[in-house]
């Protein structure tokens, strides 16, 4: 028999406790790069509503994890990703990608962005507005993928093909961020439970 000549993907290893040195050295305690990456997701020209998304990442004992790095990937307010394979244009300076670390004392994380629009799904469907998250930390052997959906998009969420893949309605709720107003700004709370009661839904993408 002939052999398939595919290569194997490089296996993952944990990001460890010192991920900040490489990806956010300012947080590790030193200044090295002229510009750290991922702090400005939407840029100054982005259309749409300015929002903040924040939360904590909670472990199986119910405690916040304080050495997490999260990356966000999202479309703009028109539902377009800043990528050559997505037809359409995004605003000058809109990247749709961000990187955030949790506070060493509290485990809180948060980022400022714009609320994304609905994005084309498979087979002509439309996906409800969402932000894709990738979560790494010490003790996480392969980065965890999840999605932030928005609590004030109930109608779109009800039709979302990905949320509807989740058999258990109760578990779908783990992906819905709840909106509050704080000092005139829209803030969405999205706590992530990596293990335990109401464990967040993670995706194998």
């Amino acid at each position: 028999m002939q052999k398939l000549d595919y290569l194997k993907e490089t296996p993952s290893q944990t990001a460890g406790p010192y991920v900040h040195i490489g990806l956010a050295p300012g947080a590790a305690g030193f200044d090295i790069y002229a510009r750290e990456l991922g702090w400005d997701i939407a840029g100054p020209n982005a259309r749409g509503e300015r929002i903040r998304v924040e939360g904590v990442v909670i472990d199986g004992t119910g405690s916040p994890i304080k050495d997490v790095m999260l990356e966000a990937w999202q479309a703009n307010a028109d539902g377009i990703y800043a990528h050559p394979e997505h037809p359409g244009e995004v605003e000058e300076g809109f990247r749709g990608w961000g990187r955030v670390i949790t506070d060493f004392e509290t485990g809180e994380w948060g980022f400022d962005t714009v609320k994304p629009g609905p994005v084309p799904g498979r087979s002509g469907s439309l996906m409800a507005p969402h932000i894709n998250l990738w979560i790494v930390a010490r003790g996480i052997n392969l980065g965890l993928n999840t999605r932030v959906y928005f609590g004030d998009e109930a109608e779109a969420n009800a039709d979302d093909p990905v949320l509807n893949l989740i058999e258990w309605e109760r578990r779908r709720q783990t992906l819905i961020a709840h909106r509050v107003e704080r000092d005139g700004q829209a803030v969405y709370r999205f706590d992530i439970k990596v293990q335990g009661e109401d464990e967040t839904v993670f995706f194998d993408i």
Binding site: G60, G139, I140, Q195, E199, V201, F203
Partner: peptide, 14 residues
């Protein structure tokens, strides 16, 4: 460290 930081449910495949 993976003991309390590992999801117990299967991931949803997309």
């Amino acid at each position: 460290t993976s003991v309390t930081r590992s999801p117990q449910y299967a991931p949803i495949s997309l």
